[in-house]
Design a protein around this nucleic acid. Structure first.
Ligand SMILES: [Zn+2]
Ligand SMILES: [Zn+2]
Ligand SMILES: [Zn+2]
Ligand SMILES: [Zn+2]
Lengths: 140, 140
DNA sequence: ATGACACACGTTATAGCATAACGCAATTGA
DNA sequence: TCAATTGCGTTATGCTATAACGTGTGTCAT
C-alpha cells in the first residue's frame, strides 16, 4: 500500500480549515469556510485557498468539482486499498437533498477507466467521479 | 434504444451557441462563447447561459464540471448504446495540453456505479466522470 | 553571524463563472 | 380576445478563484 504524498504537521491556518471541514456534515465552499473562520482572524479568501491547496496535496481534503466545494476525506472502513489515497480513484455520491457525501473506491471502475486510457494512449493525471442524487435517508 | 429527451428546432441564439461549440476543437467557457458571438448581437452572459441550458436539456451539449466549460456532444461511432443520450452515463477524457476532449461511454463503469448506488439505496440523478490527463498526440 | 533561500502568511485588487430580477415581444391554445 | 408560455434583452449582483505585492520566520551553507 502506498503512503500518502506527505503529511507534515499542519500550520495553524491549515488546522483551522481542516477542523471546520471535519466538523461539517456537508461540503463547504471556500467562502463558507472563510465565514466560519472570521472569528479566528481569517479575513481573505486566499487564506482559505492556500490552506485548502495544501490539504488537497496531503490528501486530507477532496474537491467536489460539480459543487465547487470541499470535504474532509472520509474513506469508509471497507476501502482498505484506498487508505491514505495512495492508490486508486475515489468516487463520491452526493445527496442533493441533505448534502451528505459518500466517499468510496471501486476497483472495477478504476481499472475499467484505466483500460480505456491505455487503449487510447491517454495518460490520466486525475479522475473525477461524482454521482449526484438522493440518498436512502432522504428518499424514504 | 431510448430517444433523446427532445430536439425541437433551435432558436436563433441556441443555434449560434451550438455552432460555435461545434466548430471549436476544445471546450469553451460561457464567457468565451459570449465573446465569439458579440458580432452576432450577443451582449450579456445570460444570452449564452439560457441557450446552453436548453442545449444541455436537449443533450446536444455537455458541461465539463472540472473545467466550468462546455462541449458539443461528440459520441464516437462505437458508442451505439449511447446515441442520443437516451442511455447510460457519458465519460470524458480531457487533455490538459491540447484541450481536446474524448467522449465515451462504458457499460461496465456505468453498471458498476449503478450497483453501488443500488446497494446503498442511493438514487442517482446525474453522474460526472472526467479524466484529466495527456492525450496520446501530446505525449508523443 | 550573515546572507540566501524556502515557505507560510496577510492584504488589496482583479479576474472568471453564474444567476436574480425586471420588462418586452411573439406564440399558442382556450 | 385573453391568458399562459416561452424566448429575449438589459442591468445589477453574487459567488468562485487567483495575481501581485510585501512581511516575517526558520533553515542552512558559508
Ligand atoms: Zn478520501
Ligand atoms: Zn440525503
Ligand atoms: Zn454526448
Ligand atoms: Zn492533447
Amino acid at each position: 500500500m502506498n503512503a500518502p504524498v506527505s503529511s507534515p504537521a499542519l500550520t495553524k491556518n491549515q488546522s483551522l480549515v481542516f477542523d471546520v471541514l471535519t466538523r461539517s456534515d456537508a461540503p463547504m465552499s471556500a467562502y463558507t469556510i472563510l465565514d466560519k473562520l472570521r472569528d479566528h482572524g481569517f479575513r481573505a479568501p486566499l487564506q482559505v485557498y492556500r490552506a485548502l491547496d495544501k490539504l488537497l496535496e496531503f490528501g486530507m481534503v477532496h474537491r467536489l468539482e460539480s459543487l465547487n466545494a470541499f470535504v474532509a476525506c472520509a474513506h469508509p472502513e471497507s476501502d482498505c486499498c484506498a487508505k491514505g489515497h495512495g492508490h486508486g480513484t475515489v468516487a463520491f455520491a452526493i445527496c442533493e437533498s441533505c448534502g451528505h457525501v459518500f466517499e468510496f473506491h471501486d476497483h472495477a471502475v478504476d481499472h475499467r477507466l484505466g483500460d480505456w486510457a491505455k487503449g487510447k494512449g491517454f495518460k490520466p493525471a486525475k479522475t473525477t467521479i461524482e454521482i449526484r442524487g438522493i440518498c436512502s435517508s432522504c428518499a424514504a
